[in-house]
């Protein structure tokens, strides 16, 4: 593929995107407009993230791509292969080895370090959009720091559900100034945004916005005095690696109510299992399973999917996203068998 420029985009485009990124880093949380390009993938599949990644990559970089925490789902595999072909960079699944990590809707469980760049894919960058449809007005609200409306949304949550039911894309305030949509990460990940040693970049391709959090930025999740922010997750341990503090996916295993909970971060889970940690079903899955998991194409088996965001059944599905948060259990099986 020598016909492509390094990392697909031409140098002038990358320069334009880098300018937007620098401006975003200079003004943390501020949405910088940029001239988003058509990418060879549909909107909603990470066109913004891909452009930011392309502008950041150097030939020496090691790239990791995750989709809802997993390295082996369609979106992650296709974007990783895209950059293998157009940039020829090394790729990895290990969070610690990567220098650039493009992510859809998760922050890796393994703490990030200085020198790493985390690139988020953002469907709708404007946190006030669903409350105030006018772009002119939301810009004015950011300009004048009129963020009362954001609390109206949280008020509505409590009035309707008895608690703040917003489980993903939970609004945050950056350095006491800009209210920012952290992209549809689960609110479990919100505490990882603040004081993070890595550079965090957010790219929204369709909406043509880039924003950024420089290392060690203060990020506060909005809440009420009598309804404080809580980072929620499913009340279980990982069934494969036994982790108690990682974000879990709920996997429906049969049509008789069978289910299991597994780490959404596949690299974290695999790492723990190689170190010998075992969950409730961790050993059984390697040995002949007494609780068999049906595979794709097996006669009479129901199609089995993994539902993401196990902690929040009340929340609506992720908005404006082309790719649903589901992966087949057969993928899981191959991954769990060494």
């Amino acid at each position: 593929m020598t016909t492509y420029n390094f990392a697909y985009l031409d140098e002038q485009t990358k320069r334009m995107i880098r300018r937007a990124i620098l401006k975003g880093i200079a003004v943390p949380g501020y949405q910088v407009p940029f001239a988003s390009r058509e990418m060879p993938m549909p909107y909603g599949w990470g066109t913004g993230g891909v452009q930011v990644t392309a502008a950041c990559l150097t030939p020496e970089d090691t790239l990791k791509v995750i989709d809802q925490g997993a390295d082996d789902t369609t979106n992650a595999v296709s974007i990783r292969r895209f950059f293998q072909r157009t940039a020829g960079v090394a790729t990895t699944e290990a969070t610690t080895e990567a220098t650039v990590i493009q992510t859809r809707h998760r922050i890796p469980e393994t703490p990030l370090t200085e020198g790493q760049i985390l690139v988020y894919q953002v469907p709708i960058p404007e946190p006030l959009r669903f409350l105030e449809p006018r772009e002119t007005e939301t810009r004015k609200m950011h300009e004048l720091e009129e963020y009362g409306l954001m609390h109206v949304k949280l008020y509505e949550d409590i009035a309707r559900h008895g608690q703040i039911a917003t489980a993903y894309a939970y609004p945050v305030k950056v350095e006491g100034r800009y209210v920012m949509d952290p992209s549809p990460i689960p609110k479990f990940d919100n505490p990882k945004l603040t004081a993070n040693p890595a550079i965090q970049l957010f790219g929204a391709g369709r909406e043509q916005r880039i924003y950024a959090l420089p290392p060690y930025t203060e990020v506060v999740s909005l809440d009420f005095d009598d309804h404080p922010f809580t980072a929620s997750k499913a009340a279980h341990d990982c069934d494969l690696c036994g982790a108690r503090d990682s974000y879990l996916d709920e996997v429906i295993t049969d049509d008789a109510g069978g289910r299991m909970f597994v780490c959404s971060d596949t690299d974290f889970c695999a790492g723990r299992r190689t170190k010998g940690h075992k969950g409730r079903l961790g050993a059984d899955l390697v040995a002949p399973a007494p609780h068999p998991l049906p595979t794709r194409g097996e006669g009479g088996a129901q199609p089995v999917t993994v539902t993401h965001d196990a902690a929040a059944h009340t929340s609506p599905p992720p908005r404006g996203e082309g790719l649903g948060g589901s992966r087949l259990v057969s993928d899981l099986q191959t991954e769990s068998q060494p």
């Binding site: 009129e146 009362g148 109206v152 008020y155 509505e156 009035a159 809440d223 009420f224 009598d226």
Partner: peptide, 18 residues
């Protein structure tokens, strides 16, 4: 909701107690 409509001005001037 009606409550949210009335509460908006309060929240706009900094009320943070639900």
């Amino acid at each position: 909701s009606a409550g949210g409509n009335v509460g908006e001005r309060l929240m706009a001037v900094g009320a943070r107690h639900y």
